[in-house]
Amino acid sequence: MTSKTTNKFSPEVRARAVRMVLEREKEHTSRWPAAVSIAARIGCASQALHE
């Protein structure tokens, strides 16, 4: 059975987004606001980056 979801972003883009969240985490009170900020920039769900 195949997954109903597709990977919209390449592995390189996903890795960069995670790095950006981890870098921005220092500027925010927690990881969540950093994930929300980066997710809005690249057009993905905040929850995906937070996990």
Rank of each mutant, 00 (worst) to 15 (best):
A15D: 07
T2N: 13
S46W: 07
A17P: 02
A45M: 01
I42A: 01
N7G: 07
E27T: 11
P33D: 08
E23F: 04
R24A: 07
P11D: 12
R31K: 15
T5L: 14
A35H: 09
R24S: 06
L49P: 04
A48I: 05
A39T: 03
S10A: 07
T29W: 14
T2C: 11
E23S: 11
C44G: 07
I42P: 02
I42V: 06
A48R: 10
H28Y: 13
E25V: 06
A48P: 00
E25Q: 13
T6I: 08
T6S: 11
R31Y: 05
A48T: 10
A48C: 09
T2H: 11
T6F: 10
R41V: 10
T2D: 12
K4P: 12
A35D: 11
K8H: 02
M1Q: 12
E51D: 12
A40W: 04
Q47K: 14
V36D: 09
R31H: 05
S10V: 02
K26L: 02
E27S: 09
A35W: 06
M1C: 11
K8R: 12
E27G: 03
C44T: 08
E51N: 12
V18E: 08
A34C: 00
E51W: 07
P33V: 08
I38G: 03
E25M: 10
T2L: 15
E12T: 11
G43V: 04
K8G: 00
V21E: 01
S10R: 01
T29Q: 15
E25A: 12
E23G: 01
